[in-house]
Design a protein around this nucleic acid. Structure first.
Lengths: 249, 249
DNA sequence: CGCTCCTTTGACAGTAATCAACAATTGTGG
DNA sequence: CCACAATTGTTGATTACTGTCAAAGGAGCG
């Protein structure tokens, strides 16, 4: 079984870390955030956390593990839209949408913090700054989706995979889960294919090319970036779209 | 020059229409929305409305015309992430992000309503329901982006273009700009290529196939859907991701 | 009326998909 | 703890979808 991708800490630690690289969070706000967590659950790898089209009244904060959002199409085609790491809300969009049009599934065993929509709604009524913050993280989600569109639409296989590895490194770094160009990524090549709009066979060949060129290695659930500048150049990766950096929200 | 794609009315009419298919808007809220519009501007086709990376302190509501968000990559590659129609905020995401990582450009001549971020911020402080509504429309933007990822990642050229035509019909219908399977769409085939991750040559061939199969015609800036069920089936189009339909927000 | 942009078409190239088989790894149960 | 099953990874041969290059015909504009 995969060891959890994440740190063991208070459920909201990852989220707070993610927020604090963007703006200040007061002690009182921190308490509010910690307070909205109704419960912590554990799910097994492969389990569906939020099925498409099911009305939901809670949102889920990922404490550790890896989660993806995906849609299925006819004849076995599957597309992963986004991969979530510790500190991400995996279904905050459902707070106002009421349901999701895609599935959310655990890639690895995960620890999840449950936040009732009622509590989120209360935040929008009484804590506008926190509400904007929550809105903000959904906007960063959208920015990641736009970059994903660019990737799949206009980058070739090598660039797409390189880009994915660069993005995950940057996002994992924010929550302290990547250092020295190494991080755990317990995806199968088939998962990578679904995330990049390729086939697993082609992913396999492309990963070999990345290795042969001395750019990065992805093997047994672990990524090692050998040459970050080189990899970023190949991918045309610019982390600006992650909106990391302080700015009043 | 293209005639404007839209209706002539009060600047906020399109937005209100879009909101009211989702939830109730009180008279007082309607007044607030109309009140935040500081000014109405007109831009010419092709003009960049919001350049990437430029700090912004206003957001832009599209009254009529067609707008796109896009990013450029090396060697002339361009990807359109989203096309906006009357009633859409074209850069509401910048309210909290502070800037955008992509460009926003007018495809046709446009009428734009300008909303200062200060006014939006005030709404988050004093009108939580409206604030959630604004948040909601950015979440629908994200849902459209996810569907776009699915399209480009897993649908072939015919399906992608069919899907684009289905989506735009559904979105234009909300604001009353498509009826009887016909609507104005003053895009070049090159624009369609950039929106679907294809080349203009291939778009041209694929449009011919759509025509030959009696599904839809796209010619001189106008779309005619001859066989909606057929087109939707080809595209595997399901409008659920547009979250049209009433639900308290 | 000449120019520019857009559309259309053909020939050819190339990236990635498909099909198929086998190796390696991980998991399971006796 | 070993043997078998299942999943995942690897590689080769072939196909096909889409891209690239090139050129000509239309349409709109000044």
């Amino acid at each position: 079984m995969d060891s959890p991708v994440g740190f063991i800490g208070e459920p909201a630690d990852g989220l707070l870390r993610k927020l604090r690289v963007r703006d200040q969070i007061s002690r009182e706000e921190e308490a509010v955030i910690r307070g909205v967590i109704a419960e912590v659950r554990v799910v097994k790898a492969g389990q569906i956390i939020v099925p498409a089209e099911m009305p939901v009244s809670i949102s889920t904060l990922l404490c550790d593990g890896l989660v993806c959002r995906y849609k299925d199409l006819g004849s076995g085609r599957r597309q992963i839209m986004d991969i979530h790491v510790a500190g991400d809300f995996v279904d905050l969009h459902a707070f106002l949408l009421g349901k999701l049009e895609h599935n959310v599934a655990a890639i690895t065993d995960c620890r999840l913090a449950i936040v009732p929509h009622k509590a989120l709604r209360a935040i929008t009524e009484t804590h506008p700054h926190l509400a904007r913050f929550l809105w903000f993280v959904t906007l960063v989600d959208a920015a990641v989706l736009r970059e994903q569109i660019l990737s799949i639409g206009r980058r070739n296989a090598l660039q797409r995979i390189a880009h994915l590895l660069c993005e995950l490194e940057a996002r994992l770094q924010v929550v302290g889960l990547a250092e020295g160009g190494r991080y755990r990524l317990p995806l199968t090549q088939s998962d990578v294919a679904d995330a990049t709009g390729l086939t697993s066979v082609h992913v396999n060949r492309t990963l070999r090319t990345l290795r042969d060129r001395g750019l990065a290695t992805f093997r047994s659930g672990e990524v090692t970036i050998h040459d970050q500048p080189g990899l970023r150049q190949v991918a045309e990766f610019d982390p600006g779209y992650l909106y990391i950096g302080r700015r009043p929200i």
